[in-house]
């Protein structure tokens, strides 16, 4: 009796939460729509205008190129940062003399360096190029990966490592069959964080350093006071981020990082 009552109450509470959440979103969009009607579109474009601009970003070839360019750069930088972070974490772990160089000098430096600083320096050093954007993104993601992966390495049980060594002396086999599987949850966490950071960063990195990509589109839209396109690029980033997380990272996490998370 009591059980069914609480579950009924629980279901009602859940329904109310849902109503308020979706209602709030609906209300916000309605509010946006009604305010936008009284304002010029370069100040606040209406939802329909933004939606139209968003659609163009994914359908019109000249704009779609930029969406694809940003996506590819994000994927490439996340991959590079993960590999680089793993390499640095492994070096810090296996060469004790270099531990402080990496964890106490390089990591805090990278961690406190402002992203806009990298973005400007990259253009000065490497001109406007793909490499420039990749450099900015990798160098900013690196500390996130490094922190997570070195925490993961710290957690590895020394007894298991010893066991591994007693089975084979091949470093490679130990690395692929023992270290990597044990590191998987941390790798996934590093992947998740850097993926999210990288999408938000993409606009900054492309602001000065690229002549393609969503950041470039946004800057141009800002100069021409095309505020609908500015908003659309931001929304496109949010959508691409969510899509990648739901379609790639969540399944990966379920597959490799166990049922939790």
């Amino acid at each position: 009796m009591a059980d069914s009552a609480t579950s009924k109450g629980g279901r009602r509470a859940a329904l109310i939460q849902r109503l308020i959440a979706e209602g709030g979103v609906l209300l916000a969009i309605l509010g946006w729509w009604s305010v936008s009607r009284t304002m010029p579109s370069f100040v606040l474009p209406g939802p329909v205008d933004v939606l139209a601009a968003l659609w163009k970003l994914f359908s019109e070839p000249s704009l779609m190129i930029n969406t694809v360019a940003t996506t590819l750069r994000v994927v490439a930088s996340v991959a590079l940062a993960l590999v680089g972070g793993l390499a640095l974490a492994l070096v810090a772990r296996t060469v004790p003399d270099l531990e402080w160089v990496i964890l106490r000098r390089l990591q805090p430096l990278l961690n406190s360096f402002p992203s806009i600083g990298w973005a400007i320096l990259a253009v000065i050093w490497f001109d406007v190029s793909n490499f420039s954007v990749l450099f900015v993104q990798v160098v900013i993601l690196l500390p996130f990966c490094l922190i997570n992966l070195s925490a993961g390495l710290d957690e590895i049980d020394q007894e298991v490592v010893e066991m591994g060594r007693s089975f084979t002396r091949s470093t490679w086999r130990n690395l692929t069959m023992l270290y990597l599987p044990l590191l998987m949850p941390y790798l996934i966490a590093a992947l998740r964080i850097s993926y999210g950071v990288c999408w938000k960063l993409a606009l900054v990195a492309e602001l000065f350093g690229a002549n393609s990509g969503l950041g470039y589109v946004m800057v141009r839209a800002q100069y021409t006071a095309n505020n609908a396109l500015v908003l659309a690029t931001c929304v496109a980033i949010v959508l691409l981020f969510i899509a990648g997380e739901k379609l790639i990272i969540d399944p990966l996490a379920r597959r490799f990082a166990g049922p939790r998370d």
Binding site: V43, G196, K200, Q222
Partner: peptide
């Protein structure tokens, strides 16, 4: 959390 900081900055100037 997923909205880009630079997007807010650009919008803030306009508004």
């Amino acid at each position: 959390n997923s909205f880009s900081g630079i997007g807010w900055a650009v919008l803030a100037v306009i508004w």
